[in-house]
Amino acid sequence: MLLTDATIDPATFAAETGWESKPEGLCKGDVCVPAPEALAVDGQLDAAAVAAKLGMAIVRDEASGVAVLGPESGGRALTSATVPDLNLEDVDGNPFDLASLHGRKVLLVAWASW
């Protein structure tokens, strides 16, 4: 996810990464990581502390000042079997929320033109 600041809004972080900020720590599915140091004073998350705790790389472009937080690491590609929020657009730009298919089985296929 793009980082625009040294802190991250917890709701945005949850939507982008699936990690929710709870009293017991940062949680994804059944996994909770205690991370008191990740809580900044104003209810925001401290990006550097979150990154260190969850094994998320931060890569920065010095010219533009833009930084990106990578996914959690140190285990498997999937931390949880719960599908994260997935909001993508179709080729004409119409939004689609994968959660709208709850109640049906879904075969999600990645392909590419290249």
Partner: peptide, 26 residues
């Protein structure tokens, strides 16, 4: 089983993902 059968993700893969995404943004 789903989690166990997913691929391993070392920190290098997290950095690769962040680098690729930042590249797309730029």
């Amino acid at each position: 089983e789903v989690i166990e059968r997913s691929q391993g993700r070392p920190i290098e893969h997290s950095e690769a993902a962040a680098s690729f995404e930042l590249g797309c943004h730029l």
